[in-house]
């Protein structure tokens, strides 16, 4: 393809992808409580609002807590599973790999509704910790896929060498496997963290009436009174995601990670 055409096409796609974000960024610096674009006046007070207004601050706190814990739980589920599948020959255990990928492949409403009926049946509906478990299951796919990929890239002869020299299973895991798999743990955690931060429907159906996460708060603000804080939170979210994925790319092999993600998991 010719270079001019390519440039024009990439510019058009780039514009399409960034236009909503440019407008939202513009709206977020309005001086008064209006969603005007181009912005009227300039003020960063709507960014301050996220941290100063108790409602928004609580929502931010709830979202970050949920994301930190659920991503950790997702990794805790994915790590032993993918290690076992790499270490042992047990074809039937692949069923758990499939179960781990399923929630992410099905439309999110399904997982959300399944969780809602489940928590309602066991009587824990609305407890904050149910959202952590629900998100961990919903996003376990991401660490599972990155970790499976990570394990396949480990040279088995390294492990064999350690074993021949007398290291037991535990020592091998700690001194050989863990350092090699660590980048994949980090990127799996990062993916799950960012997606949990942004997730709406599962959180809404499990704890929507007791806890307000940021996406739920934005949705409620959309219905009951617009405020430029919605825009500043959006900018904050996009920046956070870009920084985290940028770090993953900086310290890991992003094209490879994505190249295998789609063949492996999806």
């Amino acid at each position: 393809m010719t270079s001019i055409f390519r440039r024009a096409y990439f510019f058009a796609i780039g514009l399409f992808l960034s236009l909503p974000l440019i407008v939202v960024a513009g709206v977020s610096v309005n001086q008064k409580q209006t969603l005007a674009f181009p912005p009227q006046g300039f003020s960063l007070s709507w960014y301050g609002e996220i941290f100063l207004n108790p409602e928004w601050r609580n929502a931010l706190f709830a979202s970050v807590t949920l994301a930190v814990l659920s991503a950790a739980l997702a990794v805790a589920i994915a790590l032993p599973l993918s290690w076992f599948l790499w270490r042992r020959i047990a074809p039937w255990a692949n069923i758990f790999q499939l179960l781990g990928v399923a929630p992410f492949t099905l439309p999110p409403v399904i997982t959300a509704l399944g969780m809602l009926t489940f928590w309602a049946t066991v009587g824990s509906y609305g407890q904050p910790w149910t959202a952590v478990v629900s998100h961990a299951i919903f996003f376990v796919t991401l660490p599972l896929v990155t970790l499976s990929l990570g394990f396949t890239s480990i040279d088995r002869s390294l492990v064999e060498a350690a074993s021949t020299m007398g290291a037991d299973e535990r020592t091998i895991f700690r001194t050989v496997v863990l350092p090699l798999i660590l980048p994949y743990i980090v990127s799996g955690y990062a993916f799950a963290f960012v997606l949990s931060l942004n997730e709406y429907i599962v959180a809404y159906m499990t704890v929507g009436f007791t806890v307000e996460t940021l996406p739920i708060k934005i949705f409620n603000a959309l219905r009951y009174g617009y405020t430029p804080t919605m825009a500043s939170v959006t900018v904050l979210f996009v920046t956070t995601a870009a920084v985290i994925f940028g770090l993953v790319a900086r310290f890991g092999d992003l094209p490879k990670l994505l190249g295998a993600m789609s063949t492996d998991g999806k």
Binding site: L17, L19, P20, L21, V23, V24, V27, L35, F37, V194, L195, N198, E199, Y200, I201, P215, I216, I218, F219, L222, M230, A231, T234, F237, V238, A241, A242, F245, G246, A249, L254, P255, L258
Partner: peptide, 25 residues
């Protein structure tokens, strides 16, 4: 890598945020 980071960032965006951004636009 730059494009992939941008695409991932947009992909991870909440539907609420995408809906809000486009309704503003």
């Amino acid at each position: 890598v730059v494009w992939l980071v941008a695409l991932l960032s947009i992909l991870s965006l909440s539907e609420v945020i995408i809906g809000f951004a486009w309704s503003t636009l």
